[in-house]
Design a protein around this nucleic acid. Structure first.
Length: 214
DNA sequence: AACTCGGGGCA
DNA sequence: TGCCCAGAGTT
């Protein structure tokens, strides 16, 4: 069963949406600022953790200025239950101050500016650019990278090349959801060490099925 | 390239 | 219980 990358994407869209929970896009799109903060907090954390924390956090401080005015201890208390809470509390406070003082409280719309913010790397920047500003960029983490290569959507060890390959074949409105679903798929099924091919809904189109590759 | 941060999820 | 990270920053 040979399929073009675009045909595979269409198949993924149909199948993965029924296997994994839907992304909480209504929260993510409340404002670019809240998306940015939630994405910073999301590193090495779960959706559930982030949803719980951000609900409280954004009730206390819905925008950059109000977050910048909170005491550091108050912010730490709000994010204490998440991993790397000390770093993240410090980072989101610094980010809110920088945005307030240098960007009139708004989120910059270039990757160069975003990556200068503490706690924001390439992946987080791309999430914001794609989800909040609808720019044609693809967020790629270790899961998306690994799964994409196994599926034959790309053949590279370089994240930048995976980004380029994916953005070329994924319909723009589905980029953010694609990232969400492939991340979950990589986490729970297409695992790094023991991929669960027997229960994988993509096995029929996946050239790596049955191969215990890396 | 290797190491750190560090609570949670999962086997 | 123990292992492995939904990254980013530092060395």
């Amino acid at each position: 069963m040979k399929q073009t990358p675009k045909e595979k994407i269409k198949f993924l869209k149909e199948v993965l949406g029924t296997r994994y929970p839907e992304p909480r896009s209504e929260l993510l799109f409340e404002s670019p600022f809240q998306l940015l903060i939630a994405t910073i907090l999301a590193a090495q954390a779960t959706d559930r953790q982030v949803n719980i924390i951000t609900r409280e956090l954004f009730r206390a401080a819905p925008d950059a200025k109000s977050l910048s005015l909170l005491e550091p201890e108050s912010i730490l208390k709000l994010v204490r239950s998440i991993n790397y809470c000390n770093n993240k509390a410090k980072n989101i406070r610094s980010v809110s101050i920088i945005l307030t003082e240098q960007y009139a409280g708004k989120v910059p719309e270039t990757r160069e500016e975003l990556e200068k913010l503490p706690g924001v790397g390439r992946k987080t920047a791309n999430v914001v650019l794609a989800a909040a500003f609808h720019q044609p960029v693809m967020p790629v983490d270790t899961h998306v990278h690994r799964v994409s290569n196994r599926l034959g959507l790309c053949h590279t060890s370089k994240v930048e090349e995976t980004e380029a390959a994916l953005i070329a074949i994924i319909p723009e409105p589905w980029v953010v959801d694609f990232h969400h679903y492939l991340l979950l798929h990589g986490r729970y099924t297409c695992k790094a060490k023991k991929p669960d091919c027997p229960t994988c809904p993509l096995a029929t189109i996946c050239p790596s099925t049955g191969k215990t590759t890396s």
